[in-house]
Design a protein around this nucleic acid. Structure first.
Length: 497
DNA sequence: TGTATACCATGACGGTCCCT
DNA sequence: AGGGACCGTCATGGTATACA
């Protein structure tokens, strides 16, 4: 019903007809995979950067927020109790009297329902979820002590500790750890301190609970990151599923990012079972689980670094995150951490999907290809070799068996299963360059030419370096000519080996 | 003119229930 | 077990109106 309502409203168009079949067909291991949505890159960047900016801006004022909100809500409650002013507007006005307006310029708004605080909660949740890949349950198990920093090879690495909600067979509860970014610390602190007044409110109510165990549980719930406001109709301190969904929606709506044609295409590509759900001009609403898949997808597609670049202060974390990605969680073992195995599986699955997608494109769709391996594929296609026209299933099978593998380089793809990403690729026999990659080499070539000229002009006598740059420019030009990209031939001094 | 109230639509919050 | 539908409550904000 909700779906049809949303459909009428034009929010979504959800086609669940072949849901099960499609998911099994598309999953790398032939089993149904979780149907979480993966956010297109632009949308993810819009949401994440807004959430990060929100947190960065408000983090220093978190104590002040709590104090002012406490003042506002006690005044407001008193007005209600005294039955003064029948109009909410006037109640609000008087409750706001005397409250410091420094927060006003920061966009902090005071409302008795806690709508603004709900938005804050949504922003913090997004940052925690987006940069850890945690499960919803785990995120809710975090508290102020969950964030730790460890040193690894001279790099400061942020780690989050959470208790596994599901106990093992023996009833032993496991601790799970997640590599993350420093902003998560700020998100946790902001959430914790801005809601302090709410927590205090709940705490004072706990005294009325007579049964010891009940009171104990109540007090434990209060020490959660996500609490509701104590003076409303709610009677549970912990923010439930629905309240969090509201928070996420409030936040996403406030961002007001409208999907473009490009976003819709990417959405359909990333979420084949939900093709058509997102339409141009719509706001993509998020759910707690979508961040986990988005995390896995971006980790594999090596875009996490670009998302992390949103704020310059995260740059140093790229190294740790990237090495974690590159060494397949080797870093985790250094920390003696239990990395969530489901997430590992999800990452591995995405890796296969990604590889298969690229091969499918190379074998069947790509119009022009360059590089030795690219030429080989092109020739095979020209000869009508039927083995080249592989179906996605066949490709996936080969990927799983380790017969096909792909490594992404700045200038192209490498099909060598043992590629260590160290070679310069200019003469690599496994090299494949697609048109898109070739186009991305245009600025690279310009930079190289500038470098070449600068080195030559300064009279530095480094023939090895200069010749390397020269041959790199020439190899890029070769790629250009194979893709019919126009360029003026670089006429640097010719080298002879 | 400033302040308070009435009425109304909207929609957010956070709970329970129900379905898959 | 988790997601969504549904529900009750009530803040919010627009407009109209009454009063000092």
């Amino acid at each position: 019903m909700f779906a049809s309502h949303a459909q009428r409203k034009g929010v979504i168009r959800r086609n669940i007809d072949n849901y099960e079949k499609l998911s099994i067909y598309l999953s790398p291991n032939g089993e149904a995979v979780s149907q979480a949505v993966c956010l297109p890159e632009k949308i993810a960047a819009a949401y994440f950067s807004e959430a990060l900016g929100f947190i960065e801006k408000l983090h220093p004022y978190r104590h002040q927020i709590s104090e002012s909100y406490e003042e506002f809500s006690t005044k407001y409650t008193k007005i209600i109790e005294e039955k003064r002013y029948s109009c909410a507007r006037i109640r609000r006005k008087y409750a706001l009297k005397g409250i410091k307006y420094e927060l006003d310029s920061l966009g902090v708004s005071f409302d008795y329902r806690g709508a603004w605080l709900s938005k804050l909660r949504g922003a913090c949740y997004i940052v925690i979820a987006a940069f850890t890949g945690c499960r919803d349950g785990e995120i809710k198990s975090f508290n102020i002590d969950s964030y730790k920093e460890k040193k690894y090879a001279g790099i400061k690495v942020s780690v989050l500790h959470g208790n596994h909600t599901k106990p093992n067979v023996g009833g032993v509860s496991r601790e799970t750890s997640w590599v993350t970014i420093p902003s998560v610390k700020k998100a946790i602190e902001l959430l914790w301190d801005a809601f302090r007044f709410a927590r205090e409110g709940w705490r004072s109510q706990a005294a009325d609970i007579e049964h010891f165990d009940e009171r104990h549980k109540f007090l434990r719930d209060i020490d959660s990151l996500f609490v509701t406001l104590p003076y409303l109709t709610g009677y549970q301190p912990r923010a439930g599923k629905q309240s969090l969904a509201h928070s996420l929606r409030t936040f996403v709506r406030s961002v007001d990012y409208r999907a473009t044609r490009e976003d819709v295409n990417e959405f359909d590509l990333l979420n084949p079972t939900r093709e058509g759900d997102l339409k141009v001009g719509e706001i993509l609403e998020v759910h707690p689980h979508c961040f986990r898949r988005t995390f896995a997808v971006y980790l594999v597609r090596n875009k996490l670094a670009s998302l992390l670049d949103i704020k310059y202060q995260f740059k140093h974390m790229n190294i740790a995150m990237t090495s974690w990605y590159a060494s397949q969680a080797n870093l985790a073992s250094h920390f003696d951490m239990m990395i969530d195995s489901d997430l590992q599986d999800e990452i591995a699955g995405e890796n296969k999907n990604y590889t298969a997608d690229i091969f499918y494109y190379l074998y069947n769709d790509a119009e022009t290809l360059a590089g030795p391996e690219g030429r080989r594929i092109k020739n095979l296609r020209a000869e009508g070799d039927f083995t080249v026209y592989l179906s996605k299933e066949e490709i996936l099978k080969q990927v799983e068996e380790g017969r096909l593998s792909i490594t992404e380089h700045p200038g192209g793809y490498c099909t060598n299963p043992n590629c260590d990403r160290i070679c310069d690729m200019s003469v690599c026999q496994y090299k494949v360059v697609t048109l898109k990659k070739a186009r991305s080499l245009i600025p690279t070539r310009e930079k190289l030419m500038a470098k070449y000229n600068a080195m030559l002009a300064s009279g530095i006598d480094m023939p090895n370096v200069i010749s390397k740059i020269y041959f790199e420019i020439r190899s890029i030009e070769k790629v250009f000519s194979e893709h019919n990209i126009d360029f003026d031939i670089f006429n640097g001094q010719d080298f002879h080996i």
